[in-house]
Design a protein around this nucleic acid. Structure first.
Lengths: 121, 121
DNA sequence: AAGCTAATGCGAACGAGTTGCAACAGTCAA
DNA sequence: TTGACTGTTGCAACTCGTTCGCATTAGCTT
């Protein structure tokens, strides 16, 4: 367990938003100037492969990350300011499982993303 | 309306799977050797911007396309053979709208992907 | 302290997608 | 039919996020 990994893990643990690799690199670099972007990518890949963190591929191209120790949630993505909000609907989860099972499948994982804008009223 | 665009449109119209840009390029090239990859990308972007076709960003990185003249549907993706099945659940659509509106948003578009495997029973 | 392995930083390479530019095709008016 | 104007094309060079090769270094073990 190297110093760089410790720093990256600390940054991840303290992140309550959904930072991308570059953002994580900058936060880690601020704590320890010996962290490189390659190491951030390598560590993220390692952790995601082991299921220790969650990798999200939203539509913007780059990947975003969050801790996987929390319970499953879906994402509501505001398109103008690029904000990401988490939510969870038991009913939707149930219905998804039903749809899959009616077609003869069981769900391994799923992704529900609502791209939204503030409703004006 | 140039010859190249006609060919690309024809290929898109005949595609009942979800091909990516490169696959579409090869299919178009087979019909007309004067089609280039740039033009495929440019045409896809044009059509997607106008809503004439649908761009899907699944987890593999590259984008896949299908005709948008059909009604909205979500995707059920079998992970071992890589098959993509379309479905639609009115109830899920409703619940999504409710979740968003409770948080003060309205849905612009959404994406629901169920990654599944055949259920053994 | 020595030695071995695994992790690091750097820069170069990757793949999907975009873009600048000069050449070209379509369309329309005369 | 010609010419001219506008939009589209192919090519190569580029971007951006991410990965990789490699020589160097850090972290454990004895």
């Amino acid at each position: 367990m190297t110093e760089q990994r410790k720093v990256i893990l600390r940054v991840l643990a303290n992140a309550d938003d959904h930072p991308d690799a570059n953002e994580l690199y900058h936060r880690a670099y601020a704590l320890d100037g010996s962290v490189s972007l390659s190491t951030v990518y390598r560590t993220l890949r390692l952790l995601a492969d082991r299921g220790a963190i969650q990798r999200h591929a939203f539509e913007e191209g780059r990947a975003r990350f969050d801790n996987a120790d929390r319970e499953h949630h879906d994402h509501l993505i505001a398109i103008d300011p690029g904000q990401v909000i988490e939510f969870r609907s038991e009913k939707i989860e149930e219905l998804q499982a039903r749809v899959a099972s009616e077609l003869g499948y069981e769900i391994v994982r799923h992704k529900l993303e609502l791209y939204v804008r503030k409703s004006r009223d």
